[in-house]
């Protein structure tokens, strides 16, 4: 498949995926990358250069917040992200839209498949 098509799908869904991930519990940059790479092989490898701009945008929009906490191991610090109240509401709206959207797409896909099977 054309990598640009994958890129388009990724661009549209990554924000929602990140909100879902962060909504699941406080987490930090590297853990987000690992989780993305573990669960979304079809989207290709996640990179900091893709994820951090989205994190900055979500934080700028007031959907996520962060706090810097000292890391237990070596005196370093990790920035922990969590959803804000506004983020939780927005994610709820996004998911409702996503349900309607994917049902609509699925409708077209199954109609095509049925027709394809007949011809």
């Amino acid at each position: 498949m054309d990598p640009r098509t994958v890129q388009q799908f990724k661009k549209g869904s990554l924000e929602m995926i990140l909100l879902c991930l962060i909504g699941g519990g406080e987490t930090y940059g590297y853990a987000i990358l690992e989780e993305l790479n573990r669960r979304s092989a079809v989207l290709g490898w996640a990179k900091e250069g893709t994820v951090y701009p989205i994190l900055y945008r979500l934080q700028g929009a007031g959907l996520i917040q962060s706090r810097v906490a000292p890391a237990a191991a070596n005196g370093g610090a990790k920035k922990l992200y969590s959803l804000t109240e506004q983020g939780r509401e927005t994610l709820g709206e996004l998911l409702r839209f996503w349900d309607a959207y994917s049902a609509c797409v699925e409708d077209f896909v199954s109609a095509y498949r049925e027709k394809g099977e007949m011809t």
Binding site: Y28, G29, Y30, E48, V68, A73, K79
Partner: peptide, 14 residues
């Protein structure tokens, strides 16, 4: 820059 330092540090830990 702070976030970049964390990126390098976390990667090193892994």
């Amino acid at each position: 820059l702070r976030d970049l330092r964390e990126i390098f540090e976390s990667a090193r830990e892994h």
